[in-house]
């Protein structure tokens, strides 16, 4: 028996480009605070993807740790170092 992996391909088509855009944006922005917020958005989109793959436990952890606490920790750090990244 083979598994039909294209269960929700429309959903994938919507989320995956946004994940890639977020990843590139987080790397290319100079302002570290914007980068922190975008990495939070990236985590939230990944959380949606985990849910779509029926890994609800992983999605829950991603939402709590990735999108929640780590964004706050990154913001707290970004405000204390120089806000502009050099490269």
């Amino acid at each position: 028996m083979t598994w039909d992996a294209s269960l929700l391909w429309q959903f994938d088509l919507l989320i995956l480009p946004m994940v890639i855009i977020c990843a590139i944006a987080a790397l290319s922005f100079k302002d570290l605070v914007s980068c922190a917020v975008i990495s939070g958005a990236f985590s939230f989109l990944m959380c949606l993807l985990w849910t779509e793959m029926l890994a609800v436990d992983v999605a829950f952890t991603e939402a709590a740790v990735g999108a929640g606490v780590s964004t706050v920790l990154l913001l707290g750090t970004a405000l204390h170092v120089k806000r502009k990244s050099k490269d």
């Binding site: 609800v56 436990d57 999605a59 829950f60 952890t61 709590a64 740790v65 929640g68 606490v69 706050v72």
Partner: peptide, 21 residues
């Protein structure tokens, strides 16, 4: 249901962080 020590602990921690924020 989904959840457990890690997730619950993070939510508890973020409630304290919200207070501090």
């Amino acid at each position: 249901s989904p959840g457990g020590g890690f997730q619950g602990g993070v939510i508890l921690g973020s409630s304290l962080i919200l207070l501090a924020l």
